[in-house]
Amino acid sequence: MAHGLVKICGLSNDATLEAAIAAGAGMIGLVFFEKSPRHVSLETAARLADRARGRTEIVALTVNADDATIEAIMDRVRPDWLQLHGSETPERCVELKARYGVRIMKALGIREADDIATALPYVSHVDRLLFDAKPPKGADLPGGNGASFDWALLQGLDHGVPLMLSGGLDPRTVADAIRIGGIGDVDVSSGVERARGEKDEDLIHVFVAAARQGATDRPAGDRTLPG
């Protein structure tokens, strides 16, 4: 079975970017959210994106960003994907996809079974859905909190937009998450950090290897949302 896609999110320097690419990450994420310890300036993001371009897919993560912010990111960084990690509507996804010709990944918070249904309005309007753990009450960040959810809630999803799993993943848990949830594509941020906002090159390599093994071992058949 083909290896699953791994995204290393919240990169901020050359060394960890190179580690992610060398490990085989299919996507790297650059965070544009000032409350996040992983936030990068446009200048840094543009430099990292230029270094990564053509070697892996570049994802720009935003949270309810206004038009001026999106415009600047698209102009300076030129990402392959926009990851919308706030309360953006399906209409906003359609608008940004049409305006910039960019692929859209919509992140949705999951805590219980009913949360899965919140994804349905997005299915025909985005290129990928990312299921992340809902943040703890009072948290400043919509993701990257190291929180997890019951991966079994994702079992049985089929036929539709590609899915990605995030939330509380690390080298020890990712294979189980893939096996239980049935989703082979995964996204990690805090799970490969030595300190908050500080990625660890060795952990990146170990995580990608564990995710690949998990994707190889999982039952056949991708899990996607019904259209």
Results as ranks from 00 to 15, higher is better:
Lys97Arg: 15
Gly167Asp: 03
Ile104Pro: 04
Glu18Gln: 15
Ala22Pro: 02
Leu163Gly: 02
Asn145Ile: 00
Asp80Ile: 09
Ser148Thr: 15
Gly181Asp: 07
Thr16Arg: 01
Leu96Ala: 02
Ile178Glu: 06
Glu43Tyr: 06
Val206Phe: 04
Glu91Arg: 05
Ala46His: 04
Gly221Ile: 15
Glu112Gln: 13
Arg92Met: 09
Leu82Ile: 13
Leu48Glu: 08
Ala113Pro: 00
Thr44Val: 14
Leu129Met: 11
Val123Tyr: 05
Lys137Thr: 11
Val31Asn: 10
Asp115Arg: 03
Gly101Pro: 12
Arg103His: 14
Leu129Tyr: 02
Gly168His: 02
Val208Cys: 12
Gln213Phe: 02
Asp66Val: 14
Asn64Ala: 12
Gly168Ser: 10
Thr69Ser: 13
Ser12Leu: 03
Val186Asn: 13
Ala119Asp: 09
Pro79Ala: 06
Ala60Met: 05
Ala98Gln: 15
Gly156Arg: 06
Phe149Arg: 05
Lys106Asp: 06
Phe149Tyr: 12
Asp176Gly: 01
Ala195Thr: 05
Pro90Tyr: 10
Tyr122Trp: 04
Glu198Ala: 14
Ile116Ala: 04
Ile21Tyr: 08
Ala215Gln: 12
Ala195Pro: 06
Tyr100Ser: 14
Asp50Thr: 01
Gly156Ser: 12
Ala60Phe: 05
Gly24Lys: 11
Pro121Phe: 07
Asp200Thr: 08
Asp127Thr: 00
Ala177Thr: 07
Ala65Met: 09
Ala211Asn: 13
Ala2Asp: 10
Asn145Gly: 00
Gly191Thr: 03
Ile178Phe: 00
Ile110Glu: 00
Ala117His: 12
Gly144Tyr: 01
Asp185Lys: 01
Ala19Phe: 09
Tyr100Lys: 01
Lys35Asn: 13
His85Ile: 02
Ile204Asp: 11
Met27Arg: 11
Lys137Trp: 04
Leu108Gly: 12
Gly4Asp: 05
Thr216Ile: 01
Glu57Ile: 05
Ala72Gly: 08
Gly160Phe: 11
Val94Ala: 15
Ala68Gln: 15
Leu120Met: 11
Leu11Asp: 10
Gly182Cys: 08
Gly10Val: 07
Ala15Gly: 09
Arg111Phe: 00
Asp176Cys: 02
Arg92Cys: 01
Gly86Thr: 09
Asp67Cys: 08
Met27Ser: 02
Leu169Asp: 08
Gly29Val: 14
Arg92Gln: 15
Pro171Gly: 05
Arg212Lys: 13
Thr16His: 09
Ala117Ile: 10
Glu88Tyr: 03
Arg92Val: 09
Asn145Trp: 01
Asp115Pro: 03
Val40His: 07
Asp187Gly: 07
Ala65Asn: 10
Ala113Tyr: 08
Gly101Trp: 11
Ser148Trp: 02
Ser12Lys: 15
Arg111Gly: 03
Ile183Ala: 06
Ser124Val: 10
Ile28Gln: 00
Pro162Tyr: 04
Arg172Thr: 00
Val59Phe: 04
Gly29Ala: 11
Leu96Lys: 06
Lys199Ser: 13
Ile70Thr: 03
Ala98Lys: 15
Ile183Arg: 07
Ala49Leu: 04
Ala65Leu: 09
Leu157Gly: 02
Lys97Cys: 01
Ile70Ala: 06
Lys137Cys: 00
Leu17Ala: 08
Asn145His: 08
Gly181Ile: 03
Ala211Gln: 10
Gly101Glu: 14
Asp132Glu: 13
Lys137Met: 03
Tyr100Pro: 12
Ala177Met: 01
